[in-house]
Design a protein around this nucleic acid. Structure first.
Length: 673
RNA sequence: GGCGGGAUAGCUCAGUCGGUAGAGCAAUGGAAUCAUAAUCCAUUGGUCGGGGGUUCGAGUCCCUCUCCCGCCA
């Protein structure tokens, strides 16, 4: 059979924010699928990019006093680092702010124009005279025209659910400057006439998306109503691409974002000496988009219509997944369940989230729940207890008593191996159909069988009586473990790499299932996974709670309001001490943390991890300083070690914190109160 | 408000064509001590969100109510 040629995309993360565990539901399942395809020998590319344009980025950059280019560059660095540490392997991760993307947008626009898919129309828009810009609905606030609820967004009311145009609002004001009253100005906008493509789309939906998604979208195709046109232009000032022959008009960010898939692919082609048309417009190549259900409208209506109208090939399938909930609820900053990828990495092994998500993700649009208790439990009992333990007990005994050399398998072992191999096609089908949750189910059944075999054979007893029979048992166990690793490799790639090292083999592919390891040495066993401890999860949740309440975009700097009044006793329970910074150093693998060695004088030294890296990019400036340590804080285990206390600092902006330093006669160990 | 999805064991979920409820984990009892307190054997555990209907028979089909979630361009 000829190898397939497949292009896979995940939705582009917006450059105005960090990657969080919700994003990872998508990037990880896409990674599972792509890695599986590659293991099968298919040519498969994982294409993505940062989505960099639009008003929110322009305003954020303006507020931070930097250019949008600087903002998106910083995001790019953070995003790619987070993805890499979660073992997400893009073939190309690019940016929508690229020459390739500009060219594709222009080409598509000109073709749409030529094919009569576009028209211009004057529409009234709110304009802020202070900021000298047109305001997107989300940047207008005012009183709801229906229910009079104050301080609502410009497009809909959160109180009564009414939807309206921003110009209908009472006392509308600009949310960028926070005060100016917007004026109504007419502006010419360019529209994509979606309704022209209703028959094409009806047909397209029946073939290229799951039926539940198609049915939902088809609700808009009733005979007596038209599909609404799509406004694809925005007025200057706007961070994006200016539309050819329309000075002062820019492509709406949602037009150039999906085009970014093509641009990122082209960029990969240019770097690798490949032709774009071999991958995208080739009927023999497959194109798949992985997206969340929130952006179905863009990917299953506008995008296929736009590609069709500009003579490009559309996606073969759009795979739609649900949202992430944490402990059964929407992610919440105040509950500490809005967890950034980086915060997770500060406390836990990325392989564990990969494993857990695999257990929960399938090919439906249902939401995925990250239950934190369930997470620890499953990782500890399945991944560590059942699976990893096989290698741990097998390889260590082989080294302790049998010189680390594999022998041959016994009859029972051979039978087990062929039973394991008989599951290969079923597991492959689960991957192919994106029923990832079924893979750990299958694999755990195999691990159970292997553990039963091990216990039944009692090698810890036979080692005293029949050394070679024991070698057979351990050879079997390690071969079974190896097969499990191959099955799990798309989900646990770095784990698999460690196992490849253990057995001194080339990187595993699906073909590696056919090999049997006999009569050869095994490298010394190194830990493959360490149990999750409750304090790591608790620490991650704590660290995700905001130090300050979320402040909406606003020109006015704010400080936290005072907390409720307390009795002196509530303060007296905390024991704060003067501490001397003996050594301050950055923590390898963490953006947020620095590691401090503190002297408390007669009370000894402490190791403390402090999340103030953003404020102290060069932690060594703290060396020799006196600081204040909350010294009776319960030690907390983090991914990098145990933190024994908390250093106090002032400020609410995490990038502008200032460590509190006692002056005068204070010496290490002195109490503070 | 409209539309859609969901509610099954302590937890996470499966349940096909209607035939008196399944798995894993947890819990309990035992075994084992090679292994990272990991493993093995056994057991317990459910009015399938409430009510009504169709049917010989309903977790499954129909109606209704309650609660949760999402979407409404």
């Amino acid at each position: 059979m000829q190898n397939r040629r497949i292009v896979v995309t995940a939705a582009l993360p917006y450059a105005n924010g960090d990657i969080h565990l919700g994003h990872l539901v998508e990037y990880l399942q896409t990674d599972f699928w792509v890695r599986f395809q590659k293991m099968r020998g298919n040519e498969c590319l994982y294409i993505c990019a940062d989505d960099t344009h639009g008003t929110p980025i322009m305003i954020r950059a303006r507020r931070d006093g930097i250019t949008p280019e600087e903002l998106i560059e910083a995001s790019y660095a953070r995003h790619t680092k987070d993805f890499a540490e979660f073992q997400i392997e893009f073939d190309n991760f690019y940016t929508t702010n690229s020459p390739e993307n500009r060219d594709f947008c222009n080409t598509i626009f000109k073709r749409l124009e030529k094919n009569g898919a576009l028209y211009c129309k004057d529409i009234p828009q709110l304009y802020c005279p202070d900021d000298k810009m047109f305001l997107p609905d989300r940047f207008v606030r005012g009183t709801c025209p229906k229910c009079n609820a104050p301080d609502q967004y410009g497009d809909s009311c959160e109180k009564c659910g009414a939807t309206y145009a921003p110009i209908e609002m009472k006392d509308a004001h600009c949310a960028v400057c926070g005060k100016a009253k917007p004026e109504v100005r007419n502006s010419e906008h360019i529209f994509f006439d979606l309704d022209q493509f209703r028959n094409y789309l009806k047909d397209w939906l029946s073939k290229h998306v799951a039926t539940d998604v198609a049915n939902k979208l088809l609700e808009w195709f009733s005979d007596d109503s038209k599909l609404l046109p799509w406004d694809i232009s925005r007025d200057a000032p706007y961070f994006g691409f200016e539309i050819p022959d329309h000075p002062g008009k820019f492509f709406y960010v949602w037009l150039d974002a999906p085009v970014g898939y093509m641009a990122s692919l082209l960029n990969w082609c240019l770097k690798n000496g490949e032709k774009f048309d071999r991958w995208w417009n080739n009927p023999d190549a497959e194109l798949y988009h992985f997206i969340g259900k929130d952006i179905v409208r863009f990917h299953c209506l506008f995008w296929p219509a736009m590609l069709h109208a500009s003579d490009f090939k559309g996606p073969d399938q759009v795979f739609v997944h649900g949202f992430l909930t944490v402990n059964g609820e929407k992610m919440s900053k105040s509950r500490g369940t809005f967890i950034n990828a980086r915060t997770y990495l500060d406390f836990l092994d990325p392989a564990f989230l990969r494993y857990y998500y695999a257990c929960k993700i399938n090919n439906t649009t249902d939401d995925v729940d990250l239950s934190l208790d369930d997470f620890s439990q499953r990782v500890n009992s399945d991944l560590v207890g059942k699976i990893t333990n096989l290698a741990s007990r097998g390889a260590q005994m082989l080294h302790k008593s049998l010189d680390g050399i594999l022998g041959e398998m016994d009859e029972a072992g051979k039978k087990l191996v062929s039973m394991f191999l008989s599951r290969a096609d079923i597991i492959a089908e689960h991957y192919e159909a994106r029923r990832f949750s079924q893979v750990p189910v299958e694999v755990c059944k195999l691990a159970d069988a292997a553990n039963e075999y091990f216990d039944g054979a009692q090698p810890w007893k036979t080692i005293k009586t029949d050394v070679e029979a024991t070698r057979k048992v351990l050879t079997t166990i390690l071969n079974l473990f190896r097969l499990i690793t191959i099955y799990m490799k798309p989900i646990l790639p770095h784990y698999a790499t460690k196992v490849e090292k253990l057995f001194m083999e080339e990187p595993y592919t699906w073909e590696s299932l056919k090999t049997v390891l006999e009569n050869r040495p095994v490298a010394p066993y190194e830990y493959l996974a360490v149990r999750v401890l409750p304090e790591q999860v608790a620490g991650m949740v704590d660290a995700s709670k905001p130090a300050v309440p979320e402040v909406l975009i606003s020109a006015e700097p704010t400080v936290e309001p005072l907390k409720a009044e307390i009795e002196i006793g509530a303060f007296a329970v905390s024991d704060m001490r003067v501490a001397l910074v003996e050594n301050a150093a950055p923590v390898e693998g963490s953006d947020k943390l620095i590691q401090l060695t503190l002297s408390l004088g007669p009370l000894g030294t402490r190791n403390v991890f402090s999340g103030i890296r953003a404020s102290y990019p060069d932690p060594t400036v703290l060396n020799g300083k006196l600081v204040v340590l909350l010294a009776n804080l319960k030690p907390r285990k983090m991914r990098f070690g145990i933190s024994e206390g908390m250093v106090l600092s002032a400020g609410s902006d995490t990038s502008k914190l200032c460590v509190i330093s006692p002056a005068g006669n204070a010496k290490p160990g002195d109490p503070i109160g």
